[in-house]
Design a protein around this nucleic acid. Structure first.
Lengths: 250, 250
DNA sequence: CGCCAACTTGATGGCTGTCAAGTCAGGTGG
DNA sequence: CCACCTGACTTGACAGCCATCAAGTTGGCG
């Protein structure tokens, strides 16, 4: 990564509560929407992305039925997204971390269909969708990369369907932990030691299990020397053991 | 829906084994990708869509790991898509019918990640993806509608996650039948009487149940006067009863 | 007509949900 | 500083739903 002085792009000016973002300066650019853009294209993207927005822990970034106007790149923090069925049951559909994109569920209906809640104090970069489409028509690389992002979301959900449709509780939790591990790892964090931002209940909702089952399974993993768990702090002791758990029998 | 769609008349030129398709002539155009295009734009789309391809029952339209080149609009017939986990377990991720788009899972990796199998003799319209992106940069309406199609696929999968994550066997099957009913209905077929193209095993895989459970649940529905089932022929006797089943307790 | 895959039905068992009680951690206020 | 309070978590006992195993039946097709 060459740290070239930017000729005309705005520097990251900091005002009271708002921060102007520059994708071209962001250390997540290799993970996020700008992936694959050249310098010039990335500077165009800088103009597209709106003012960074803070989302305090426990508050909504958007709610189902909100009018859809933008998708959001996570600059920092941690989110959950979920849907609420007609009869009130909640299903967590995903946990999102830095560099990931949220809100694409709203394109089809012009309204969001999920709730997005920050699980810790976070910052997102809103990307006005109409503008993104405009710019996608100019920059093929951006267009194609956005399509990839949506496609990967579809594929991710296939993975969740496999998990919910075919796996037993132990396998689900093992898959969940390994997935988190991999994602922390690719963000430069320790792969085998992390802090869970979500509650047992939220994990359970995501995995199609009750919170008691999640808790019990954590305990069993600990007895078996696979992980070390203390409340929200998790250390993966035997990653290979967890992997083996997932491909067992059946 | 303005005009009542009739089951698949084909006003198009027919050669030996290949049929040149015209979106502008297709009676599925109000359901499929051309939605929202004006006459002129639709004629451009005619050039984009490739020669119609027949897929015989039981054969693959594409397989996981196949290089990704096109998405497919279903002209007629019925498909299932599914993924196979590392350890061999299969999960059916969806059933697709006329007017629906398949293959978007392949965009992200340049390779398909699903298997698509025809459940009856079918015809698809291949849409070369690179060309679709090119044309999307020219026609904003097409671009936007394609984004909607992808978004709706994400939302559909959220629905499956709710089903797999929170519903009991009866609720899952009721949701499944009502969903089929609604989709047949919007294609001009009887909403309450149809032929299942898939086996009990495939239904079970989709719903996260074993085939015996699917069969038993069908039998219970029949005893309760909700449906009339004879092998693959299904008649929904009490749609309201099925709906009530889904929003009960919990 | 006969074969085979798909389906139905029964008996049994196990995984996970449910209900309940108790523990832990963190934050607040006296 | 400590007591207390609340939400999150853990653990136990039990039950129920669904998977598993096992026959038997049906229907389509060569």
């Amino acid at each position: 990564m060459t740290s070239s002085p930017k000729p005309l792009a705005q520097p990251i000016s900091i005002t009271a509560n708002t921060l102007k973002v520059a994708c071209s300066q962001c250390n997540l650019r290799e993970l996020c929407l700008p992936l694959g853009l050249n310098e010039q294209e990335m500077h165009k993207l800088d103009d597209l992305v709106g003012t960074r927005r803070r989302v305090k822990r426990g508050t909504h970034l958007y709610r189902a039925t909100d009018p859809f106007e933008a998708i959001y790149a996570i600059r920092s923090g941690f989110f959950k997204t979920g849907v609420i069925a007609e009869d009130g049951r909640e299903q967590v559909t995903g946990f999102q971390m830095a560099g990931e994109i949220m809100g694409m569920d709203g394109i089809g209906t012009e309204h969001h269909t999920c709730n997005a809640v920050a699980l810790e104090d976070s910052e997102v970069c809103p990307i006005p969708f109409a503008k993104l489409e405009d710019m996608s028509r100019e920059i093929g690389t951006l267009q194609h990369h956005f399509h990839k992002v949506m496609s990967r979301e579809i594929v991710r959900e296939h993975g969740v369907m496999v998990l919910l449709g075919t796996m037993r509780a132990e396998e689900r939790l093992a898959a969940f932990l390994l997935n988190l591990s991999q994602r922390f790892s690719s963000r430069g964090y320790a792969p085998n030691e992390f802090h869970l931002r979500m509650t047992r209940d939220e994990i359970g909702s995501y995995l199609g299990l009750k919170l008691e089952t999640v808790s019990r399974t954590f305990s069993r993993f600990q007895e078996d020397g696979l992980v070390s768990v203390q409340q929200k702090h998790v250390r993966i002791v035997d990653p290979a053991g967890l992997k083996k758990l997932m491909s067992r029998n059946c």
